[in-house]
């Protein structure tokens, strides 16, 4: 009876178990406990939330292993962590720490402006960001087992997440409408492998779970993204940069489950106090836009 680890099914299956849930950014064990108590399906351990990375500038890197281990010890839910784009050694370190998922993330400063990590070489699964279908399929081709649409992290402005979700799902719908002999050119245009393009055209969905991320700050934002077809939601700065993190976190979890019931979303939205201070994406100069990182 051979037990095989790190198979595609095990990696992608892990993401299936997170569906309908909220994954929350946390920077220490206390925040991780608050997230778990609020019903998060997983936490993302990182040193600074995107809003602070944005405010403080500098190079953003993988978190301190001590901090990740403290978070792992504090909660029973899955713990994810971020590696820089292309930084396969950071990814090896995170795998050796036993993190449950690695986010090869544009929120950190890229280590390689040409290549992403070859994710097939790892036992631990990866989630990667994408602004469009071609980008999503290139990441899947490199071994990503889960995709999240990119938003503009650390802004509290949901417009980019919305745009990218529409983009990805719009392109999937378009593929489904093509004749089979048109898929070759579609693959060329998407700059994605033909086999993956064909699979998406047939199934009408990505072969992996699609979450959304970036700029989600309220229960209604979470419900909006679910109604756009997201399988679940990442919330970064939106929770712990707000006035009442515990309550806001629980409210976002409720709104994610009942995204299609405005009464529940309304109840979840009551009396949450201050949301995070927002930045309009349009006010950000192009070099400071994180979603443009990755290719």
């Amino acid at each position: 009876m051979a037990e095989v680890t790190g198979t595609g099914r095990v990696k992608r299956g892990m993401a299936e178990m997170l569906k309908g849930g909220v994954i929350m950014d946390v920077v220490n064990a206390e925040q991780a406990k608050i997230a778990e108590d609020a019903g998060a399906v997983a936490v993302m351990a990182l040193e600074r939330v995107p809003a602070d990375i944005r405010a403080q500038g500098g190079v953003a890197r993988m978190s301190d292993p001590d901090m990740i281990e403290k978070i792992q010890a504090a909660v029973s839910i899955p713990v994810m962590a971020k590696a820089r784009i292309g930084h396969f050694v950071e990814a090896q370190v995170l795998q050796s720490l036993g993190v449950d998922y690695i986010d090869e993330s544009e929120v950190l400063t890229p280590a390689d402006y040409k290549n992403h990590i070859d994710k097939w070489n790892f036992t631990v699964p990866f989630v990667c960001g994408a602004t469009n279908l071609g980008e999503a399929l290139r990441r899947i081709n490199e071994g990503a087992a889960m995709i999240r649409s990119k938003g503009e992290a650390g802004t509290g402005d949901v417009s980019n997440a919305m745009q990218h979700m529409r983009e990805i799902n719009g392109e999937i719908r378009r593929l489904s409408s093509l004749r089979e002999d048109e898929l070759y050119v579609a693959a060329k245009e998407l700059q994605a492998p033909y086999e993956l393009v064909k699979e998406v055209a047939e199934k009408g969905k990505l072969p992996v779970v699609l979450f959304t991320a970036g700029g989600i700050a309220t229960p209604a934002d979470a419900a909006l993204m679910m109604s756009m077809g997201a399988d679940g939601v990442f919330i970064g700065s939106g929770i712990f940069k707000s006035g009442n993190p515990a309550q806001r976190a629980a409210a976002c979890v409720r709104a994610t489950t009942f995204w299609d019931d405005p009464k529940v979303v309304a109840d979840a939205s009551r009396g949450l106090g201050e949301a995070m201070v927002g930045i309009n994406v349009a006010d950000l100069p192009a070099p400071h836009r994180l979603a443009d990182r990755g290719w």
Binding site: A2, V4, S76, P78, G98, V99, D100, T123, V124, P125
Partner: peptide, 16 residues
């Protein structure tokens, strides 16, 4: 026992 087989890197498939 929750997570008895370990963390995600220990997740596996097998014929049983």
């Amino acid at each position: 026992k929750r997570n008895a087989f370990g963390r995600q890197v220990d997740s596996f498939e097998s014929d049983i």
